[in-house]
């Protein structure tokens, strides 16, 4: 069985994002870019399923600019077998991405699509659910555990008050939460090997998907900064301040 894993190129997790001076967005030029951390977890899960013999092939796909091929190479170095890059504008919306992925699913016919639960740039948390909606497949979102057996996926989901278990008939969509696994680092030999793995490039327009955004960004602004307060020398002083100055206790 085949697993499809969509991955996104985002501003690196460790970089503090800066709002552009003209308020049109967040600066990405000259900023270190990496694979969305949740997508790394998704790639890891797919590769582990293949290593266990539960899957035969892991195909990674990214929808975005040409440089997203670096992100795909990282996924290949982690163990994915081949990659597809669908070229589009810099930041397509989840709706458009899900439509592109639907086209690829129709063509590739995977039994499982594993995605990160959200991208750390737009924080949308939507693509997996939308793809599941387009396909009419079951969705195991915010997964902390996945078990495949007898044509079904049993998924433990992180919900507000605890953990929920659902069973999905395959094919199905899974979105990865933090605790699903700890992604591996790609070794140097695997990074070298990844350069030779197949990477196919397509145009979003050729897939017949309308990529026009539905949301217009009116402005992007810095949030009001919280000012640092004061350091206190004793617990007594802290309690006094909380009681009489802040009046919160």
């Amino acid at each position: 069985m085949k697993i499809l894993v969509p991955v996104k190129r985002v501003v690196d997790y460790n970089i503090k994002p800066r709002v552009k001076a003209d308020g049109s967005g967040v600066e990405t030029a000259g900023v270190k870019m990496s694979m969305n951390p949740f997508d790394e977890i998704a790639v890891e899960e797919a590769v582990r399923l293949r290593e266990k013999g539960a899957a035969s092939e892991v195909v990674v796909v990214s929808v975005g600019v040409q440089q997203a091929q670096d992100t795909l190479r990282t996924a290949l170095a982690m163990g994915a077998d081949r990659a597809i890059l669908v070229l589009s504008d810099e930041s397509p919306e989840p709706l458009a991405v899900a439509k592109v992925l639907k086209k690829l699913v129709d063509k590739e016919e995977p039994s499982l699509v594993i995605l990160g639960k959200q991208a750390i740039d737009d924080d949308m948390n939507a693509t997996g659910q939308m793809l599941a909606g387009f396909l009419g497949w079951g969705q195991g979102t915010f997964a902390s555990k996945v078990e495949l057996a007898e044509g079904r996926a049993r998924v433990s989901r992180e919900v507000d008050g605890g953990t929920e278990e659902v069973s999905l008939s395959l094919p199905a969509i899974i979105t990865a939460d933090l605790r699903l696994n700890e992604p591996r680092y790609a070794s140097l030999p695997n990074i070298m090997k990844a350069k030779k793995k197949p990477l196919e490039t397509l145009q979003a327009a050729d897939l017949g998907v309308d990529m026009t955004p539905r949301l217009t960004v009116v402005s992007v602004a810095e949030p009001t900064e919280r000012k640092a307060g004061i350091k206190l020398d004793s617990v007594a002083e802290l309690v006094e301040k909380l009681r009489n100055e802040a009046k919160v206790i």
Binding site: P17, L215, V217, E222
Partner: peptide
């Protein structure tokens, strides 16, 4: 967006 490091009006 970006973990609250920016606020987008859409």
């Amino acid at each position: 967006i970006y973990a609250g490091n920016a606020l987008a009006t859409v």
